[in-house]
């Protein structure tokens, strides 16, 4: 194979400069700032700051509230990722088999994708509201006193339901196109070998879907950790109180509502490290087992 060669030494550098500048301005510089502020304590107006070493970090480990938020984030991420992927896969497999009216059916499943997270949060507030919510009325009819903003688990339920609702269509679109790109002869051969639909799905179809599923897994974890911010913000209604919240929302609450810049910066650094570990873990361990065709 013939290798492309650059005659000019500077040319590749020049070509890389725009991209590197963007990364430097929008990632390295703010990231460095966050790391730097996390070792300092500042007054809100920024008149002075003092070096406090690891103080901002040790405060986190010793705060039972921070640990509570971390536990909720873990459970929330597992639930939202698991449910939205599972639900989307089920719907995609069923939609793949529909022949008549397939287009209408699929469009109906996809349109929710167009709803922005804060809007979804507002719809959630309207549905789950204590005084006017339709779902609250439904729970009441079933004999359960559902209370958004009062009961921790009730508020968590609303957050999970709305987050899953919004994310499912994205996963559905990817799973459906993944299913449709599986070569027909493979499936037909499998049908001859093994008559059980259930086993055929897990032994043939699903492994062939693995690249899609792996990609979606990453997308969904980052979605649950970060993009659900708008949903949580609208459901919390400016009253953190005893409501559940995710780690990224806690960064916002302490930094922007509480004006504690050092403490909030330390939390962002913790999140940054978490994402780094997650990324390395996913690509090192999972990537090896997946074969892209």
């Amino acid at each position: 194979m013939k290798r492309a060669r650059f005659d000019h030494r500077l040319l590749p550098v020049m070509l890389l400069v725009p991209q590197l500048t963007i990364i430097a301005i929008f990632f390295y510089w703010p990231a460095w700032n966050a790391v730097h502020s996390s070792f300092y304590l500042q007054d809100p107006f920024g008149f002075g700051s003092q070096f406090v070493g690891m103080d901002n970090y040790t405060r986190l480990w010793t705060s039972s509230e921070y640990m509570r938020v971390a536990r909720f984030t873990l459970v929330f991420t597992l639930l939202v990722t698991g449910l939205s992927l599972g639900l989307a896969l089920l719907l995609a497999v069923k939609a793949d088999k529909v022949i008549r009216g397939a287009r209408t059916y699929r469009t109906l499943l996809m349109w929710v994708y167009a709803v922005a997270p804060p809007v979804a949060g507002l719809i959630g507030v309207a549905l789950f509201d204590q005084n006017i919510g339709a779902i609250t009325d439904l729970f009441a009819a079933l004999g359960y006193d559902y209370r958004l903003g009062v009961s921790y688990s009730d508020t968590a339920l609303a957050m999970v339901v709305v987050s899953v609702w919004i994310q499912t269509p994205v996963n559905f679109i990817f799973f459906l196109s993944g299913l449709q790109s599986i070569p027909k002869p493979v499936l037909e051969a499998a049908r001859i070998d093994n008559p059980s639909g259930f086993r055929r799905f897990w032994e043939v179809t699903f492994p062939l879907l693995a690249p899609t599923a792996f990609f979606l897994l990453i997308i969904n974890i980052t979605y649950s950790l970060f993009d659900t911010f708008g949903i949580i913000d609208t459901l919390v209604k400016n009253n953190p109180a005893s409501n559940p919240m995710t780690l990224v929302y806690k960064v916002f609450i302490d930094g922007f509502r509480g004006n504690d810049i050092g403490g909030s910066a330390a939390q962002s650094v913790v999140l940054m490290v978490l994402v780094l570990i997650l990324t390395v873990f996913q690509f090192r361990l999972l990537e090896r087992r997946i074969h892209y065709t």
Partner: peptide, 21 residues
């Protein structure tokens, strides 16, 4: 100072108290 955060702590503990947590 940091009274906005103090109010949030109050609201959190009061709500937990009233819901029996």
């Amino acid at each position: 100072g940091f009274y906005v955060q103090i109010r949030d702590v109050m609201n959190r503990e009061y709500t937990r108290l009233l819901t029996g947590e």
